[in-house]
Simulated scan of single mutants.
Amino acid sequence: MRNAWYHEFYTRLLPGYLDAGEVTGATGRGRISGAARADFAAAAAAVLTAESMESRTYELGGPSFTLAELTDTINTVAGTSLVHRDLTEAQYAAELQRSGLDPDSARMFAASDASLARGEMHTDSDDLARLVDRELRPLADTLRQAF
């Protein structure tokens, strides 16, 4: 099972976004096929309890969004006015270091965002929805619960 990004990755960053008044990153227009942790867990349970044990790869992800769309969704859910600021990978690493992150971690997080910009967390597969056999939890619902 190849899981895309978890919604909860972003919910843990909400306090920082709110303090800064912005969502920064180096994701460009990269789409993120995020889903709630509970949806990924339900898919894992379905695969692990299936009667047939076919050997295959499941590409798991939900409806995709960009970091700009995430920002808009946060604003809608929370009534905030955060802005999205997209940076280059180098600019983002430098900003993370200025905020107190050590250089190696800052480069790692910036490289992760650059991978999102290249589409490495995007999938058009419907494997997740088929495995859970129900509607996937919307990003807005995950954010709403976090607030």
Rank of each mutant, 00 (worst) to 15 (best):
M1F: 10
M1P: 11
R2G: 07
N3Y: 06
A4W: 02
W5T: 12
Y6F: 08
H7S: 14
E8Y: 07
E8L: 05
F9V: 10
Y10G: 13
T11D: 03
L13N: 11
L13R: 13
P15F: 12
Y17H: 12
Y17F: 14
L18T: 13
D19N: 15
G21H: 09
G21E: 07
E22H: 10
V23W: 01
V23R: 02
G25Y: 00
A26P: 00
G28S: 06
R29W: 08
R29C: 07
R29L: 08
G30I: 01
R31Q: 05
S33Q: 03
G34I: 06
A35S: 07
R37E: 15
A41N: 09
A43T: 06
A45R: 14
A45Q: 14
V47P: 08
L48A: 10
E51I: 05
S55H: 13
R56N: 02
R56W: 01
E59H: 08
L60M: 02
L60V: 01
P63G: 04
F65K: 04
T66G: 01
L67I: 10
A68N: 06
A68H: 04
E69R: 04
D72G: 08
D72W: 01
N75D: 13
V77C: 05
A78M: 15
G79P: 02
G79R: 03
T80L: 04
S81A: 14
L82T: 15
V83M: 11
R85H: 10
R85T: 12
D86T: 09
L87S: 08
A90D: 14
Q91V: 08
A93W: 00
A94T: 13
A94M: 09
Q97N: 13
R98D: 15
L101K: 04
D102G: 09
S105A: 12
A106S: 03
R107Y: 01
M108Q: 08
F109P: 02
A111W: 00
A111V: 01
S112L: 06
D113G: 01
D113I: 00
L116G: 05
A117M: 02
R118H: 08
G119W: 02
M121S: 12
D124M: 00
D126R: 11
D126N: 11
L128R: 12
A129D: 04
A129R: 12
R130F: 03
E135M: 09
E135I: 06
L136H: 08
L136P: 08
P138R: 10
P138D: 05
A140G: 05
T142E: 06
L143P: 03
L143R: 11
R144D: 13
Q145H: 14
A146F: 09
A146H: 11
A146N: 11
